[in-house]
């Protein structure tokens, strides 16, 4: 018989583990990936694979040769970073840029802070923002969705619905005149629009979100607070003047909002820990998203909004403590 083990209580542990959580997230992203592969074809598949492989590669290199520590590339976190990074760049992006984005995501945003669990900002979003500022032309050429295309060059690109509305309004046109230029809402929901690889189909992302809720990988607070506040803030502006400000439903189904609210903002590492903190964080994200989308220079504001709120997370954690048992006693 082997030696008896002595340890502090408890003596049973949950089946769940970091890699199970991470691969659960990967699994939930499959519907969104399939939709994007359908609309953007081979190009989307290539971008996705490149991002995943290069993220794993850079994490391996850094852990093995720079940090000289244990190599944990198969815990799933690098796969998620790669997948999410691929999902928020255009499918037509040159692959070498995807590799640079992966390097920034893993090297700069994750490993410089000490690896999984220590980073302040969401790695995939940092990679995307880096690419957006470094290669604005390529990052703003969104291919038009052509089902099952295998074309890799000369992809026809066009503006995203958000860009159509934003530029139109800036040039003095009315929202009601602009809306016919964008696909109908049903198509937007399904993902039939120009946009980044994985963020086009709000429905597929919602499906993944429900799966994650079911698996208890995420909680409802952040997505609900984020999407709810977007609806409220956009709704207020829409009520003020529907000819300048587009309706809240349009905000919900376009751009990276759905992906951001369900996958980026809920990233465990960079989001608050307590319930009220999560809600405040979600509302902050929603508010900033609308501000940037409507008043900012970029048509899309989800990435910036979440990164800005990431910076506030330590403060939120400090300010919004969970309700303690027996703190305020109201006994009937």
């Amino acid at each position: 018989m082997s030696l008896l083990t002595v340890s502090g209580s408890p003596h049973v542990y949950t089946e769940d583990s970091v890699s199970k959580i991470m691969y659960g997230v990967v699994l939930s992203l499959i519907p969104a990936a399939l939709v994007s592969f359908y609309f953007f074809g081979l190009a989307a598949i290539l971008v996705t694979l490149t991002a995943i492989v290069s993220c794993l590669f850079f994490e391996f290199i850094i852990q093995k040769y720079l940090l000289k520590g244990p190599v944990t590339i198969f815990d799933g976190s690098a796969v998620i970073t790669g997948l999410l990074l691929a999902f928020i760049v255009p499918a037509s992006l040159p692959l070498w840029m995807v590799v640079i984005g992966s390097l920034v995501s893993i090297g700069m945003a994750k490993m410089t802070f000490g690896g999984l669990g220590k980073n302040i900002f969401n790695p995939a979003l940092v990679g995307r923002v880096f690419l957006m500022i470094s290669f604005p032309v390529e990052m703003n050429m969104y291919p038009k969705p052509i089902p099952m295309s295998t074309q890799l060059t000369d992809i026809i690109s066009g503006p995203t619905p958000l860009a159509i509305v934003k530029e139109g309004v800036a040039q003095g046109e009315n929202v009601s005149d602009l809306l016919p230029q964008v696909p109908e809402y049903v198509n937007l929901l399904m993902g039939n629009m120009g946009g980044s690889v994985g963020e086009i189909s709000a429905l597929a992302i919602l499906l993944g979100g429900i799966y994650m809720l079911f698996r208890k990988i995420i909680t409802w607070e952040i997505p609900v607070a984020y999407l709810g506040s977007v609806v409220i803030f956009a709704g207020i502006l829409w009520q003020v003047n529907p000819e300048i400000y587009v309706d809240p439903l349009f905000h919900l189904v376009t751009g990276g909002l759905m992906l951001g609210a369900i996958y980026m903002a809920t990233d465990m590492v960079t989001s608050p820990m307590g319930r009220w903190g999560m809600i405040v964080y979600g509302i902050g994200c929603g508010f900033l998203t609308i501000i940037i989308r409507i008043f900012g220079a970029y048509p899309e504001g989800v990435a910036f909004a979440i990164l800005i709120m990431n910076a506030f997370v330590p403060l939120i954690n400090r300010g919004f403590k969970p309700k303690r048992f027996g703190e305020e006693v109201k006994n009937g």
Binding site: S2, L3, L4, T5, V6, S7, G8
Partner: peptide, 15 residues
């Protein structure tokens, strides 16, 4: 016996 848990003497001592 084998000890498992936080590697700190303060806790092991109490255990």
């Amino acid at each position: 016996v084998r000890y498992e848990g936080a590697m700190t003497c303060a806790f092991a001592h109490s255990l």
